[in-house]
């Protein structure tokens, strides 16, 4: 399915990326080119081949159920534009 300008605007909005009006047509072209490139993979027969999730054959690392972190509220909110009593303060978001 070719990417049209409406899809570009929609994806940008979902990703909260602001686009200038003159960028949209250009991006649609670029995305279509990338997708066409990826489409070429569809020619490979992968019937019965398990998808590879890691280059090394390894299992996911797990952690023990132990509390090892926390109590660093100062550091957590250090970069926030606005805080109060260690809460992040954001513009009101009520539906």
């Amino acid at each position: 399915m070719p990417v049209d300008q409406a899809i570009v605007r929609r994806i940008a909005h979902l990703a909260r990326i602001e686009l200038a009006a003159d960028e949209v047509a250009h991006l649609a072209c670029e995305l279509n080119a990338i997708l066409a490139f990826v489409e070429e993979l569809g020619a490979v027969d992968v019937e019965g081949v398990e998808p590879m999730t890691s280059v090394m054959p390894m299992r996911m690392k797990e952690r023990a159920d132990v509390v090892t972190e926390g109590n660093i509220a100062d550091a957590i909110v250090a970069n926030a534009p606005a805080t109060e009593d260690h809460y992040f303060i954001v513009p009101k978001v009520v539906e």
């Binding site: 972190e69 926390g70 660093i72 260690h86």
Partner: peptide, 9 residues
Amino acid sequence: APNSHVSLV
């Protein structure tokens, strides 16, 4: 307390 049970992750 607010943001006390929070790691960098």
